[in-house]
Every structure is written in C-alpha cells, then in structure tokens.
Simulated scan of single mutants.
Amino acid sequence: MNYRHAFHAGNFADVLKHLVLSRVLAHLSLKPAPFRAIDTHAGLGFYDLTADEAGRTAEWIDGWGRLAEPFPPAVEDLLSPYRAAVAAVRARHGPTIYPGSPALIREALRAGDHGVFVELHPDDAATLRARYNGHARTKVLHLDGWTALNALIPPPERRGLVLIDPPYEVLGEIDRLGAHLARAVAKWPTGVFLAWYPIKDRAAVDRMVAVLDAALTRPALRLDLMIDRPDDARLTGSGLIVVNPPWRLAEEAALFLPALAERLARSDYGAFRCAALGPAA
C-alpha cells in the first residue's frame, strides 16, 4: 500500500479514465431511474495540484494541463461533462483542485442516485470519509477494493457502474483484474464496469484481455491510449475495459481517442485502440 495517487493526479492516464467515466455518467443520467456508482479504489477524492506531492512530479502539466486549449467542436461536446465537473469541484474546493473519480461521481449524482467510495489505505480512507460521508447521497467504506467489488453488487437500484482502478503494486494484478471483472459481470450482468490498467507490460495486458474476451457474456470495449512509443520498461499508455458500454460510446471514442493521442503525445508518437470484446465482437 505504498502507492499514493496525489503524486499522479491529473496525469495523462487520469484524463482518459475521467473522460470515459464522465461520458458513462452522462449516459446514465439520460434515464430518470436512479443509479449507483461504486468506486472500488477511491483514493482521496480530490487533489491540490499546488501541493508538494503533485509539485514533485508535475505529471498533471502533460495531462490535464494540455487540455487548456479547446479541441474541435465535436470533441469539445464530448469533453463538456468532464470539464463541467472539474469546474464544479473547483468552485467547491478551490481553483487548483483536480478531482479524482469520487469527486466526478459526486457531481453527477441526482436525487435518488448514490455513490459508494471504497478505500483501503487508512489515512486516505479517513480523508475520504471526512470529505464525503456527510453527503446524503455518498458513502465511504474502509475496505479492500476487491472484497467490495464482490460484496456491493448488484446494488438495490439495479442500474449503475463500477469503477475498478487498483494501484497495481502487487505482482500479477493485471491478471487479477481480468478474473475479478469476469466474476463481477456474471454476478451483475446489466451493470456498467470500467476497469483501468496501465500499459507497461504489454504481454500481460494482452493476455488478460484475451482471457477476459473469451469469458465475457456481455459486450465490452477496450479503449487504449498510448502517449509514447511502446517500452516495457516504463509507463507509455493506459487503457480501460468498459463492459456494457453505453450504446454510443464506441462512436464517441472514435472521436476523442485520436484527439487525445495527438494532444497528449510526449514527442512525435501517439496512438489509440478502440476494440470490441465479448460476444458482440
């Protein structure tokens, strides 16, 4: 439990993860029936980009910082829920704040919707509890995220999403992600699942995706964003598996992924992948 997201808040991986999360939340909000959003590895909720941790790495400058200039209108339309949520969080907590996934979820909740934020690190869980347990629509649990993934589904609302974003400190956690995700989908076949992974060990990611593809009984998308040339010695990209994606998400990804790959590229290399998985592939 050494990983602390405060050092990496707002980086290129957060941009992809939070943009897709915001798109899914926007789609869920189109129907009046309430939904539940579960974040299994929630962190602190939000982060100050002027704090010591973010200042040491300055990763946000080449992530969220590169989104300062607008994209073409079609892409900006897709980014608008993400940008609006960041602005709302900053209005609440200060102009240098960058929201983690709990803060983005909190901004999307309507009357009747609920957010459940799970965090194992004791200090981070205490901070998260102080920030969100006072809200009627949010609840914080100090619990192992993998345990929570099994225990909290299916939710009473029957609609909603689960974000799985582990720190990947443990050997073999990529394979663990695929196994746990397949079991969770079998338990809640209609839920939307977003599972984030770093792209460093490409063979491990491809192996996990192949096994998951064969096991899934529901449609899914693989969304990858590469911001540097493949290099198994360092992080050069990240990705998301989205199970039961909203019906237009693949079409949307075909617009925002190439735009992000161009804007967030470290040098002269940016790439992306949008591939169907599961029985509809």
Rank of each mutant, 00 (worst) to 15 (best):
L49N: 12
L240H: 06
R229N: 01
F35V: 02
L21D: 07
A130H: 12
A275P: 03
V243C: 02
L49H: 13
L216A: 10
A148N: 09
G237I: 02
S267N: 11
P155M: 06
L181I: 12
Y168S: 06
T40A: 14
F12M: 05
P246L: 05
G134Q: 07
A111E: 15
D124I: 03
A271D: 15
R137W: 09
D165M: 08
L212Y: 10
L212P: 04
F117N: 08
P230R: 06
V162Q: 07
G55F: 04
Y197R: 05
L221A: 04
H180T: 11
A88E: 09
G160P: 12
V170Q: 14
N11M: 09
R218A: 14
W247R: 11
L25P: 00
P81L: 09
L28K: 03
R158C: 01
L78H: 05
L249P: 02
R266Y: 01
L221D: 05
M208F: 06
K200F: 01
V205K: 01
W196A: 08
R56D: 10
G239K: 02
L277C: 13
R110L: 10
A151E: 10
L16S: 06
I227N: 00
I61G: 06
D228A: 15
F46Q: 12
A33M: 08
A84F: 04
A136W: 07
V20G: 00
V211F: 02
P32C: 11
R273D: 11
L171K: 15
H5L: 06
L21A: 03
D231G: 04
L257R: 03
A58I: 00
E59T: 08
A87T: 11
T217D: 15
R263P: 06
P34D: 02
E69M: 12
I38L: 12
A68P: 00
H41F: 06
D39M: 01
A74D: 14
I164K: 04
P189M: 04
V185K: 07
L141F: 09
R222G: 11
P246S: 08
Y82I: 08
P166A: 07
M226Q: 07
H5V: 05
G145N: 05
G45L: 01
